[in-house]
Design a protein around this nucleic acid. Structure first.
Lengths: 203, 203
DNA sequence: AAACAGTTTAACCATATGGTTAATTTTATT
DNA sequence: AATAAAATTAACCATATGGTTAAACTGTTT
């Protein structure tokens, strides 16, 4: 792996654990096994590095979920697939929630800037695509007359909460490494169950 | 209001917006309208101040929600009341989610320490109390055979997600000050609806 | 092999920040 | 009023940290 990429990966981790300000350039450099000056050589400043990390994450995130929404199956399955993909993505990239959450907590200025950039690009149809799933589901009389935006927010909340609270949840529920994948499978199943029995019309 | 209290309140705000490390003692002092040395006079160090802020928040939080769980009504109403109380609490104390989330994202060490303290105290029956609501609901054949822990996690996620994502959600959904309370009422209604039509046995 | 651009390093630098202190003002006590 | 204790202030201090720089190293082109 080349230097630039190693820095970016280390930065993801350190930013997610220490926060934007708590992160130390030296720690990122050490983790990447690189001289500190290299961070500035490739990324100019801490702020720019942070911005690049965020851009990298968001692009990754959008790409993954958009794949799902464009596959042609019935709305329930799409929603199920979104939940699965989302949880799986967080699980495989544990730094994602930390960074995004810290960013949003501090006003999300950088993220807003980024989204404004992406808005014009072709990829950025994600929110609309997800909305469409629900609208179609309602038209086809598969979903109840639920509030689409609220429901999306709820799904997001249910998917994300474990990863946000991970250290604490694991501490309280006593989940150790080996059990985690099992726990996550149970979590996905539960979210889908709770969700569907809430939004599906029963005949 | 006395100096100590003013510092604590300012600290809540600044910690929530800037994060534990991003927060500057000078900014807290300025916001409180107090000489910086007073922070050290009353709280010894930044770490101790942070710990006190966290303790203050957690106690506040537990007290409020425990009140609900001990009132004697049917389980559905209790859950409804918890959602309402929770959302209301976050709304009235907007610094709460920010601090807790940043704390948990960074490993939650301080919070774990605090919870261990509280564990021995009389107040700390909250998780058990909430669990009991669901267990009773299931025994009374009002609730389906849902996974209690997963459901609690889901409720938490749905309640908290708006406040976590607030700057972004407001930006995307274009909610301005006046509409917020209306939005939150809709949010509470939606959470309860989604939840109950998921967990209630239909006859 | 000389020249050149790209990459990496160690040693620095300026500054912001958590924290201290000694002196001063305010409040409570007798 | 005198005295002691608590509260407050301005001026400092030590250090950590983001950022710079000049020199050295590496690989490629001619």
């Amino acid at each position: 792996m080349d230097t630039r990429e190693r820095i970016l990966n280390s930065a993801k981790l350190v930013f997610s654990q220490r926060g934007r300000e708590g992160a130390r350039m030296q720690e990122i450099a050490d983790l990447a096994g690189v001289n500190k000056a290299m961070l500035f050589y490739y990324f100019t400043s801490k702020d720019k590095l942070y911005e690049d990390v965020l851009r990298n994450i968001m692009t990754h995130l959008f790409m993954n979920i958009n794949n799902v929404t464009t596959s042609a199956v019935k709305p329930e399955s799409k929603i199920e697939k979104i939940v699965e993909t989302y949880v799986d993505l967080m699980n495989k990239n544990p730094y994602i929630p930390g960074i995004i959450i810290a960013e949003v907590a501090s006003g999300a200025d950088t993220l807003k800037k980024l989204l404004a950039e992406l808005k014009d690009s072709a990829e950025f149809t994600l929110p609309q695509n997800i909305k469409q799933i629900f609208i179609h589901g309602k038209q086809d009389h598969r979903f109840r007359g639920i509030d689409v935006e609220q429901t999306i927010l709820s799904i997001l909340g249910m998917c994300v909460i474990y990863f946000i609270g991970k250290p604490l949840v694991n501490d309280i529920l006593k989940i150790n490494g080996e059990d985690e994948s099992k726990f996550l499978r149970r979590r996905v199943k539960h979210i889908i169950d709770l969700l569907e029995n809430g939004i599906l019309i029963r005949k």
